[in-house]
Amino acid sequence: MANNNPQSGLEKEQIFSMAEKEMEYRVELFNKLTNACFNKCIENRYKESELNMGENSCIDRCVSKYWQVTNLIGQLLGSGRPPM
């Protein structure tokens, strides 16, 4: 098996394994954000199935604030790693 790739097989495995964890992290971030903003913005009596104007603007601001909290805590954890 010729391997004229600069990366060894082992290194490649590590890259894929890291990429997988990174993607799992993003999926989890998105799901937690979605749930948190649903809990904060949507009245849970479900009188209708449409999002009303108040809910829509609450969602936009909620996503933005959640994002800022992610960044703030990312800085605090001292990692150079961006949250996305």
């Binding site: 937690k32 948190a36 904060k40 601001r61 604030k65 959640y66 909290v69 992610t70």
Partner: peptide, 18 residues
């Protein structure tokens, strides 16, 4: 940690910045 601190600290959504 982000989820917890967001839930405990962010209550109002009148603006889009903390």
């Amino acid at each position: 940690l982000v989820e917890r601190c967001f839930n405990d600290c962010v209550e109002t959504f009148r603006r889009k910045t903390l």
